[in-house]
């Protein structure tokens, strides 16, 4: 690992100011960033730890019933405290392992947009809002391809606001060594329709499976999508699974998620 300094501001404004300097990088829980630094895939001169900012903590419900989660809440925090959105709490409880969940944060995961991470599927399927220090970004406009988001340089995710669906579930097929999703599907049924988001599968990162959304909005049952098959075009092919295999998993896991949605 190349050396760097660590700063620990206590306010969002302080962090934004610190991130304005060249070669500064935000550090949330570090469960992705620290391995990346060890591999010398990044060489920031300064890390700005967000862990001391109390404004990034806490889970609450707003007037419109959305579950609002501070970006600095750990996966364990979401598992234990997001009871108002059980499918989201269950997703958080399946990320990595216990120690990763105790450090990793929802804001860090969403900002990183790993193509196999779990949270992006929940954010996109729920039609959540990503709140930053400067604006609110709709989930449909936030994820912008593998490891890429709509965030500007130095912009910090401060909160995630999730509308709570009538029924929802996330099912992932774990890549057993990394425990990331080989494919993961989040299904959310709202009064005005169903949203289906797929992670782990595409070279472009998380995406919505619109054919399944249409079929499930008419009939929310596994039967409704039995005849559909996801396209393998643009899907990830690696040692763990070919594009065709991932395409097959998308159909299977979507059906399972529909069945599991309570």
């Amino acid at each position: 690992m190349y050396n760097f300094e660590i700063e620990k501001p206590t306010t969002i404004d302080g962090a934004v100011a610190a991130l304005a300097s060249d070669e500064a990088q935000a550090l949330a829980g570090g469960q992705t960033l620290i391995p990346t630094l060890k591999a010398r895939l990044a060489a920031p001169e300064k890390l700005i730890s967000l862990a001391g900012i109390t404004a990034l903590q806490g889970i609450s419900t707003d007037k419109s019933g959305r579950v609002c989660i501070g970006a600095g809440v750990t996966h364990t925090g979401v598992t234990n405290e997001a009871a108002a959105y059980p499918a989201l709490a269950a997703l958080a409880g399946q990320i990595g392992d216990v120690a990763v969940r105790n450090r990793g944060t929802i804001g860090g995961s969403v900002a990183n947009n790993d193509p196999s991470a779990c949270y992006p599927a929940a954010v996109l399927a729920s039609g959540a809002v990503v709140v930053t220090n400067t604006r609110e970004i709709a989930a449909d406009d936030f994820f912008d391809g593998m490891f890429t988001t709509a965030l500007d340089e130095g912009e910090i995710v401060t909160q995630l606001r999730f509308p709570v669906p009538k029924q929802a579930a996330y099912v992932k097929f774990k890549q057993p060594a990394s425990r990331f999703a080989l494919v993961g599907v989040f299904v959310a049924r709202f009064a005005d329709g169903v949203r289906v988001a797929v992670t782990g599968a595409s070279e472009e990162g998380v995406f919505r499976w619109s054919e399944a959304e249409k079929a499930l909005s008419g009939d929310f049952s596994a039967k409704a999508i039995a005849g559909l098959s996801a396209s393998a075009d643009g899907l990830i092919g690696d040692a763990h699974g070919s594009p065709d295999y991932r395409a097959h998993l998308i159909g299977v896991l979507t059906a399972r998620a529909v069945q599991a949605a309570g």
Binding site: P35, L47, A99
Partner: peptide, 28 residues
């Protein structure tokens, strides 16, 4: 040393964490 094996687990403020995936300065 790649956050996978758990041999380095310690408790920080009562929570189980991988001490190879946390900087010393974060434990201030």
């Amino acid at each position: 040393d790649t956050s996978q094996c758990g041999a380095c687990l310690v408790h920080v403020n009562g929570d189980l964490v991988k001490s190879c995936t946390m900087f010393a300065l974060e434990a201030e």
